[in-house]
């Protein structure tokens, strides 16, 4: 207890800064992931044959060891936050892509026909039918992906991106357990809090009529 208070006295300000760094590296990566994966996921539902192939490629990327990916971007993008965000972005894509694809693909065909028959163009079908139906599933993918990234972002400090990971690495190098804990616990808390916040958002973006329908069912 004593040592925790002592640690906070000495490093409190820095800890806050690192936490902030950690959060924004993760969130920017997820944001990029959303921007790429959601449109891509919708586009894939239009070409089901290609979709399987592309999903397999993305799944394969996901299996690369995270440290290797981080290291891979160093020669191209150098060290610092940019390569870290790019590497994390690669990881964020798959869960969002998979959920968007499944969510949109599983929209009941009769609603698509109703939309088309009433004279919706392709964009209106996406906006008024497919997205509202798939949004809970897409959001679940985003949430999952964010929680993963917060964990993986600790590795980002390995290539000089900062964040809570730097405490963990310092602690490992210097054998200072309080540093390891100072890195691990805030990132755990962050993951739990972000998970809760995203769960709220998930509920909030689910259209009201569908929320009530789920409850009724």
């Amino acid at each position: 207890m004593q040592s925790i208070i002592e640690f906070l006295n000495e490093n409190g300000g820095e800890l806050l800064l690192k936490t902030w760094e950690h959060l924004y590296i993760s969130l920017i990566a997820v944001l990029l992931g959303i921007i790429v994966a959601v449109p891509l996921g919708i586009a894939l539902t239009r070409i089901p044959k290609m979709a399987e192939v592309i999903m397999r490629i993305v799944s394969t990327i996901q299996t690369f060891p995270s440290l290797a990916i981080l290291a891979f971007f160093v020669p191209i993008l150098g060290v610092g936050k940019v390569p870290a965000i790019v590497a994390l972005f690669f990881y964020s894509v798959l869960p969002i892509l998979r959920n968007t694809y499944t969510g949109v693909k599983d929209v009941d065909k009769s609603f698509l026909e109703a939309g088309r028959g009433m004279g919706m163009n392709s964009w209106e079908i996406i906006r008024h039918v497919e997205i509202p139906f798939a949004i809970p599933i897409i959001m679940a993918g985003i949430r999952l992906s964010t929680v993963y990234l917060i964990g993986w972002a600790t590795l980002a400090s390995f290539i000089g991106a900062g964040g809570l990971g730097s405490y963990i690495f310092d602690g490992l190098n210097l054998y200072l357990p309080e540093f390891i804990i100072a890195g691990a616990i805030p990132s755990m808390i962050m993951a739990v809090v972000v998970d809760q916040v995203f769960a709220r958002i998930e509920r909030w973006v689910t259209p009201k009529g569908m929320r009530m329908k789920q409850q009724a069912a």
């Binding site: 009941d108 009769s110 609603f111 026909e113 109703a114 028959g117 009433m118 008024h128 039918v129 509202p132 139906f133 259209p207 009201k208 009529g209 569908m210 329908k213």
Partner: peptide, 14 residues
Amino acid sequence: GYVIQQIGLFPHMT
């Protein structure tokens, strides 16, 4: 106008 068997009312719209 178009009416389908499954009714096809959008559950997310009033």
